[in-house]
Design a protein around this nucleic acid. Structure first.
Length: 583
DNA sequence: GCCGTTTTCGGCCCGACTGTTTTCAGTCG
C-alpha cells in the first residue's frame, strides 16, 4: 500500500468526492449524480468510524448515499490514493474551471460560459476581465453580475488563510497530549491567539517548561502528524502539520514558564504595553522573566515562574488571556476593575441546536442525553422553519410530534428539561416564516436571516429590527450573518439592532459555531455595555458540536461579558420568565 | 448515482432570491 494512501482519512476522501461532484457539474452531467457524490461526502464527514475500517469489513454500503460506484471510488482511494473516476473527470474538464467555482456567485454554468468565451482559468484573469468589462459582453452576464464577481474576488483575496478556532484547537490539543507524555515536560500549555480565543488562528503556539529542551524538540519534529519542519533550534522549532497548520514550540526552563507563557500568549499590543509599564518602573520584561534593568542575568529575575506573579510585580491583577488586546484591560487591571468574565461552567443550558429532523445529524434524544451529560439543566431544540428549502423545515404536524417527543424525554431525563423552540427564518420582506399561531407553540423563538444577504443596510436593519419587535420572537440569531474566511457580514446597523434589543428585551445571540462566532466580540462589548441581554449558544448540528458552547463563551469573554449579562447562565424558569416578560 | 412496507424504474428536496429575462436559469443554503 502506498504511503500516501495511509493518510487518506474520512475528510480527505470526502474532499475528493466533493471535487468529483464539482467536476460532474462542470461537465454538465446529470445533476443528481453530482448531488449524490456531495451527499455521500457529507455522510462520510458525519461518520464516527474510519472509512478504511468500514471498507475492510465490507460495510461501505451501510453509509447513506454510498452504493456501488461511490463505494468503488472510496475503495480505490483507500487502496491507491486515487480514484479513476476522479482522474478521468479531471482530464475531461479544463484545468482552472474548479478554481473559478471558488468565487461566490459563480457556479458551474457561469464558470463554463466564462471559460468557453474567454478561456479564463484563474481568479486573476477573471478579475482582469471583470475590470475590463469583458464579462458583461457574455451571454447572461451583465454589469450587475460583473460587479458581484469583482466583490466576491475582493472577499476571496481578503481571506488570510487563517484556521477556524475548532480546527486549530483540535490540532493543538493533540500535539499537547503527544508532548505531555514525554519525560521532562514539567508544564505545557497552548499560548498565542488560540489561548486568547481569537476568532481565527494564524498559527499555533505551544509553551513547555523543561530543564532539558533537546529531547523534547526531537520528539516534536518527529511527531507523526508533522508534514515538514520549517525550523529546528535548541529551544524553538516550527513545523507544519498535516492539515497545513503551522505549530511553533518554545521550551523554557521551569523558572521562566510564567514569563514565557505571558510573552507567547500576546497579543503583541498587550505585551508592548506591559513592557512599557515595566520600563517606567526601571524593569525589563522578556520571555524569561521580569528583571531590574541591567540585571537581566538568569537567576536574578524579580518574577517569572507564573503569570500571576509577573502581573503582580507590575502592579496588576492577573488578566484573562481573552482580554489581552490592549483594549483597556491594563488600566482596568491597575484599578482592580476587571470584570469577572463568564465561564463555561456558568452556562446552564443551550438554546440553539438542531437535530436530524432538519439539517442536523443526530436525533433529539441523543442531543438531550449529551447535553445532560455535560451538566446542563436544559436544552432547547430549535430546528428550522420551512422557508429554508434545503433544511426540510418543520411542518405543523412535525412540530406537534416534536412537542410530544420532548414531553416523553422530559419524563425520562428529569430533572433535565428539553424545550421546543424554533429557528425561524426572517424572510426578505421582514415577515417571519411561521404564522403567529404556530410561533405561539414554541417555548423559545430565534429569528435569523438566511437569504437575501445583499439587501441595502437600511432594508436589512429594518428587517431585523422588525423581527425583534415581533412579540413572539425571543432572540435574534447570528446577527451579522458572517461566515469566517468565507462570507462577509451583511450590511446592517448593529447599533440600531442593539438599541432595539435593549428596548424590546430581545436576546442577542453569541453563536459559538466556529464558522460564525457571531456576534463579533467588539459588538458583544457594546451590547453588554448598553445592558442588552445575551444568549450564548452552540448552534450544534451534532452531539459533538454541543462542545462549541466553549467557543461561544470564549468569544463572549473577548467581549468582556459577565455571567449576569447572559440569559442561559440562569435556570430554565428564569429563562422562560425572561422570555415571557419580553412579550 | 442512489433508492424502494406504494415503486427495481423513475424519481430524487426544494424554496427564495437574483439577474436575466418576457417565463426562466443559476446560485445558495
Amino acid at each position: 500500500m502506498p504511503r500516501e494512501a495511509l493518510t487518506f482519512d474520512n475528510d480527505a476522501i470526502a474532499k475528493v468526492l466533493d471535487e468529483i461532484a464539482d467536476l460532474l457539474e462542470l461537465k454538465g452531467e446529470n445533476v443528481f449524480r453530482a448531488v449524490t457524490y456531495r451527499a455521500a461526502a457529507r455522510s462520510i464527514r458525519d461518520l464516527r468510524e474510519p472509512l478504511a475500517k468500514l471498507a475492510q469489513e465490507k460495510r461501505l454500503k451501510e453509509i447513506p448515499k454510498v452504493g456501488s460506484s461511490v463505494g468503488e471510488a472510496i475503495e480505490q482511494i483507500i487502496a491507491t490514493g486515487r480514484s479513476t473516476r476522479h482522474e478521468e473527470l479531471k482530464a475531461a474538464v479544463p484545468p482552472g474551471l474548479l478554481t473559478l467555482l471558488r468565487v461566490g456567485g459563480v457556479g458551474p454554468a457561469t464558470a463554463r460560459t466564462i471559460y468557453d468565451h474567454l478561456r479564463i482559468t484563474t481568479i486573476e484573469e477573471l478579475e482582469e476581465a471583470a475590470k475590463d468589462h469583458r464579462l458583461q459582453q457574455l451571454p447572461k452576464i451583465q454589469a450587475k453580475t460583473e460587479e458581484n464577481i469583482l466583490r466576491s474576488i475582493a472577499a476571496l483575496k481578503q481571506r488570510t488563510g487563517r484556521s477556524l478556532l475548532h480546527e486549530a484547537k483540535a490540532a493543538a490539543t493533540s500535539m499537547v497530549e503527544y508532548l505531555r507524555a514525554e519525560d521532562g515536560v514539567e508544564r505545557i500549555a497552548i499560548a498565542g491567539s488560540l489561548r486568547r480565543y481569537k476568532e481565527t488562528i494564524g498559527d499555533i503556539d505551544i509553551v513547555v517548561a523543561a530543564d532539558d529542551a533537546l529531547p523534547i524538540m526531537e520528539t516534536f519534529v518527529r511527531a507523526p502528524s508533522i508534514e515538514r519542519v520549517l525550523a529546528r533550534g535548541d529551544t524553538k522549532s516550527s513545523v507544519v502539520e498535516s492539515r497545513g497548520l503551522q505549530i511553533d514550540l518554545r521550551v523554557v526552563p521551569p523558572a521562566s514558564y510564567g514569563a514565557a507563557l505571558l510573552y507567547f500568549t500576546g497579543s503583541k499590543e498587550h505585551n508592548v504595553r506591559l513592557r512599557g509599564l515595566a520600563l517606567r518602573r526601571k524593569l525589563l520584561l522578556n520571555e524569561y522573566g521580569l528583571y531590574r534593568v541591567g540585571a537581566e542575568e538568569r537567576g536574578q529575575e524579580i518574577a517569572s515562574a507564573t503569570e500571576e506573579e509577573v502581573y503582580a510585580a507590575l502592579g496588576l491583577t492577573w488578566i484573562p488571556p481573552e482580554l489581552r488586546e490592549d483594549h483597556g484591560e491594563i488600566d482596568a487591571a491597575q484599578g482592580g476593575a476587571l470584570p469577572k468574565l463568564v465561564e463555561l461552567a456558568d452556562v446552564r443550558g443551550d438554546l440553539h441546536t438542531h437535530t436530524n429532523w432538519t439539517d442536523g445529524r443526530d436525533p433529539l434524544a441523543d442531543m438531550a442525553k449529551r447535553a445532560r451529560a455535560k451538566g446542563y439543566a436544559y436544552l432547547a431544540v430549535t430546528d428550522h422553519s420551512p422557508g429554508l428549502g434545503m433544511t426540510n423545515g418543520l411542518s405543523l404536524d412535525r412540530i406537534q410530534a416534536r412537542i410530544a417527543e420532548a414531553a416523553k424525554l422530559n419524563g425520562e431525563l428529569a430533572p433535565f428539561r428539553v424545550i421546543v423552540g424554533t429557528e425561524v427564518d426572517i424572510r426578505a420582506n421582514g415577515n417571519l416564516d411561521y404564522p403567529d399561531e404556530v410561533l405561539a407553540k414554541f417555548d423559545v423563538v430565534s429569528a435569523s436571516v438566511h437569504s437575501s444577504f445583499a439587501q441595502p443596510r437600511e432594508a436589512m436593519t429594518a428587517r431585523i429590527n422588525g423581527a425583534m419587535r415581533h412579540p413572539l420572537v425571543t432572540a435574534i440569531s447570528h446577527p451579522t450573518g458572517r461566515l469566517l474566511e468565507k462570507r462577509e457580514p451583511y450590511a446592517v446597523d448593529l447599533d440600531a439592532v442593539i438599541d432595539t434589543a435593549v428596548e424590546t428585551g430581545t436576546w442577542i445571540e453569541v453563536n459559538g459555531g466556529p464558522e460564525r462566532l457571531d456576534l463579533p466580540d467588539t459588538w458583544i462589548r457594546k451590547a453588554a455595555g448598553r445592558g442588552a441581554t445575551l444568549v450564548v449558544n452552540s448552534d450544534a448540528h451534532a452531539i459533538e458540536e454541543l462542545e462549541w458552547m466553549d467557543l461561544g463563551c470564549g468569544t463572549a469573554r473577548r467581549g468582556w461579558a459577565t455571567a449576569a449579562s447572559i440569559v442561559n447562565t440562569r435556570g430554565l424558569e428564569a429563562v422562560l420568565a425572561a422570555r415571557k416578560a419580553r412579550r
